[in-house]
Design a protein around this nucleic acid. Structure first.
Length: 379
RNA sequence: GGACGGGUGGCGGAGCGGCCAAUCGCAGCAGACUGUAAAUCUGCCGGACUUCGGUCCUACGUAGGUUCGAAUCCUACCCCGUCCA
């Protein structure tokens, strides 16, 4: 990435939080940025018009999921995912590295790549780092991720070490393939490297040095939020953040708890993504300024008030807790949409406030204020 | 009037002498969810106590009976289906 494509606009004086701006081929992103997850090319239950309404500038899709459905040939025929889904803002694509973890019963890791048994029809598919770069090139996402090996928690040191080594090896090959494609077909896709190492600091350090050495357009930290205790997550985030370069976007993968977000951004991370607002929304959980709320609980049966009186979203302006509660209890699909919409709004708004706090040099102060309230009334 | 079949916890529906406070599903109540195999998953779900191992009470249409022991067998009655007159 050219230096001019990434700019730090503000640095908070009392933390490591920063506001940055960086260009992708589809637009200018301001960080800290939250990416909703739309693995198969759609943020579940929401239409693109709604994402735009919500102020979503980017979301993250998934190479693994798109490969199976709609299928890479289909996307090729359409000229990429943007054209296929009529979304012209930024798209990140995850590599399938997370599926190495989440679908570990269906895969087999080799040095060459990873063999997946499709959960759809049981067929075998082999993903190499090179192939995953190619697939993402066809998908034509704005930001591609290297194939990595995300390990579960807890994991033995030796296994974590091997995953770091493999992830580095794959990162080198990914970068090589990425450059080859660029030579043949110049484009403005960016490639991010992923740091692994589980909860072991020396492994994290090793991974960090090796991945940084390859030189990517941005750096992601993977292998967190896989079940480790919060203290360990914070320790790792703390540790890694001090070594990440200032002049590149820093992406913490899979983080989405409100408290964690504040923490990680305070340590200098710029981008996070999480299924939490959408998945938990579909399961009845609403995020509010006063904490999480389970709208399916009986106490909301007759509550004639918005989910969050302080929220200005379409849902809070038009629907009461009682209505949404009823829709959930009746199995009405609108319920899933309403909470997904509201929760994504909550996240977008949260990040707006975070950027605001940084630009006003009030990050830790606002963090405390926000979290005190957020923790005041958890369900 | 007669012949079958059936009445089980809020509902549906298993069980057909002891391992039955009773499989399972739904409904109900709560919990979980962090680069999405998730509109999913887990737990509780007759009542009262409990040192969480249990203890006691009330329960399989109603009333009797057989039996050491009955939701399960017998008798009568009351309902509900289907068929025959």
């Amino acid at each position: 990435m050219e230096e001019k494509n990434f700019k730090i606009l503000f640095r908070d004086k009392n933390s490591f939080a920063r506001v940055t701006e960086f260009k992708t081929k589809s637009g200018l992103l301001t960080t800290p940025l939250f990416l909703p997850v739309g693995s198969s090319g759609v943020v579940k239950t929401l239409c693109y018009k709604e994402l735009e309404e919500l102020g979503v500038e980017a979301f993250i899709s998934n190479t693994y999921h798109l490969y199976f459905r709609p299928g890479i040939d289909v996307l090729k025929q359409f000229g990429g995912l943007h054209k296929f889904i009529h979304w012209n803002k930024t798209i990140f694509t995850d590599s399938g590295g997370y599926q190495v973890y989440s679908l570990r019963e269906l895969r087999n890791i080799k040095e060459e790549g990873v063999e997946f048994k499709s959960y759809i029809d049981g067929s075998l598919h082999f993903f190499t780092p090179e192939k995953v770069v190619e697939l993402q090139h066809i998908i034509d996402s704005d930001i591609a991720m290297c194939l990595d090996e995300c390990v579960e928690y807890p994991v033995e040191y030796e296994r974590a070490k091997r995953s770091v080594e493999l992830t580095t090896l794959w990162a080198i090959r990914s970068k090589k393939k990425f450059e080859e494609i660029k030579l043949k077909e110049p484009n403005f896709q960016l490639l991010f490297g992923i740091i692994q190492g589980s909860v072991y600091k020396d492994l994290r350090k090793q991974s960090l040095e090796q991945i940084l050495d390859i030189d990517f357009d941005g750096y992601a930290v993977g292998g967190v939020s896989v079940g480790e205790p919060k203290e360990l997550l914070y320790e790792i985030v703390d540790f890694i953040s001090q070594y990440l370069p200032q002049d590149k976007p820093r992406y913490l993968m899979g983080i989405g708890e409100v408290e964690d977000i504040w923490y990680c951004i305070g340590k200098g991370f710029d981008i996070v993504d999480c299924v939490l607002p959408t998945r938990n929304g579909r399961n009845g959980q609403a995020l509010t300024s006063y904490g999480k709320v389970n709208i399916k609980n009986a106490k909301y049966k007759t509550k004639d008030e918005p989910i969050d009186p302080e929220c200005s979203c379409m849902v809070c302006k038009n629907y009461s807790c009682a209505m949404i509660h009823h829709y959930f209890k009746s199995g009405e699909l609108l319920a899933l949409r309403l909470l997904s919409y509201h929760n994504v709004h909550f996240m977008i708004n949260l990040f707006y406030r975070i950027r605001q706090a940084i630009s006003e040099n009030k990050f830790p102060l606002e963090q405390k204020k926000f979290l005190d309230k957020y923790n005041s009334c958890q369900d």
